[in-house]
Amino acid sequence: MLKTLIFTLILLWSSGCGRTADSDSEKRPKSSGKLEFITVEKSHFVAGDMPGDGHYQTIIRTLNKPKIYAQNDALENYKYYSLYENNKHKEESIIGIEKSNNEIESDVMLLLDLSGSIIEGGCNTEGTTCNQLIHAAHAFVNNIITNGNFKISIYYFNAKREIAPLTRQTEYPTSNVDILNQAINRLKDSTFIEQYLKGYENSTNLYGAVIQSGEKVCSWINCESTETFKMGAVVIFTDGRDLADLVSKKKMLKSLKKNIQYYTIGIGNADNKTLIEISGKDRHFEASENNIEDAFSQTYNYILYNSSFYRVNYCPSTREGTVRVKIFFNDTQNHIRAYTEEDKITIPNSDIRCDIIQ
Rank of each mutant, 00 (worst) to 15 (best):
P29T: 02
G268I: 09
T8Q: 08
G127A: 06
G266K: 01
K88E: 07
E126H: 06
S297D: 11
V46K: 10
F285D: 01
E320R: 08
I345T: 08
V46G: 09
K67L: 14
I6L: 12
G266T: 03
T125C: 09
R61P: 00
F285A: 08
I94P: 05
K88G: 02
I193D: 11
Y78F: 06
R241S: 13
F150K: 02
N176Y: 04
G33L: 07
T20L: 13
T204K: 13
A270F: 00
Q71G: 13
L275M: 12
L253F: 04
E162T: 12
D22T: 13
P51F: 02
K216D: 03
V247Y: 10
F329Y: 06
Y200W: 15
I211C: 07
K257V: 05
R324M: 06
S14R: 13
G208A: 10
N334K: 08
G48N: 10
I267K: 07
S288D: 10
N102C: 07
N149H: 11
H55G: 06
C223S: 03
N330L: 08
G16I: 02
T204N: 12
S25V: 10
A295S: 07
L111M: 00
E98G: 06
K344H: 08
M252R: 01
S93C: 08
W220D: 10
V177T: 15
T146V: 10
K230I: 01
T8N: 07
